[in-house]
Amino acid sequence: MIDLDDHLPAIAAGDAAAFGRWLAGAEPRLRLSLRAYAARVDTEAALQEALLRVWQVAPRHAPDGRPNSLLRLGIRVARNVAIDELRRCRVAPMDDAGLEQALAAAEAGPPRAGPDPLLRRVIEECRDKLPGKPAEALAARLAAAGAEPDEELAARLGMRTNTFLQNFTRARKLLAECLERRNVDLGAELA
C-alpha cells in the first residue's frame, strides 16, 4: 500500500519538492472529499487554501501510526476551510456525512500512484492531432499551471476570453474522443 507519510520527514524539514511528491498522490483524494460542498463553495479555492495550510502545519504533525496520516489531516483541514467559507458567506452549514467516508477511503485504498509514462505518451499523441487554436488554448493553460488567469492567456494568444474558453473546450472534447478511440477512459484511467 502506498503510504504518503513516507514523504513526511522531508516535508517537515521544509522540502517543497517532497511536498510536491505528496501532493501528486494526495490531491485527488482531497479534492474528492470536498464534493459535498461543490454547490456552495468554490472547492478549487478551498483546496488550494487547505494545501497551503497542510504545508504550514506539517512540521508539527505527529503521525498516528496508521498510513497516510497527513492525508487524513488534509481532509479535515479542507473540510474546515469549506465550512469557514460557508460561514463567511452566511450559508447554513450542511450535513457532512461524507467526512468519515473520505477518511475511511484514505485508509482503505491507495492514493494515486506516480506518473505513468505510457499513458502520457498516448495523451501526447492525441494532443499532437489537435487543430491549431484549440491546441494553443490547451497548451497555454497547461503552461500557466494555475499561475495566470484565462484573460491573460487569451490576450497573449490574441483571443477574446470567451473564444479562448471555447477553443479550450474544443481541445478537451477532441482529446477525450481520441483517448476513447484508444480505449483510454479519462474517468477511469486518470482518476
Binding site: A16, F19, G20, R21, L23, A24, G25, E27, R31, E44, L47, Q48, L51, L52, W55, R112, G114, P115, D116, L119, R120, I123, E124, R127, R141, L142, A144, A145, G146, A147, E189, L190
Partner: peptide, 16 residues
C-alpha cells in the same frame, strides 16, 4: 497530472 513528468496538476503546481 498525467501529462506532467512529476505527476503534478495545475493545482499542485500553483500551490508549490
Amino acid at each position: 497530472a498525467a501529462l506532467d513528468p512529476d505527476g503534478l496538476s495545475a493545482t499542485a503546481r500553483a500551490v508549490l
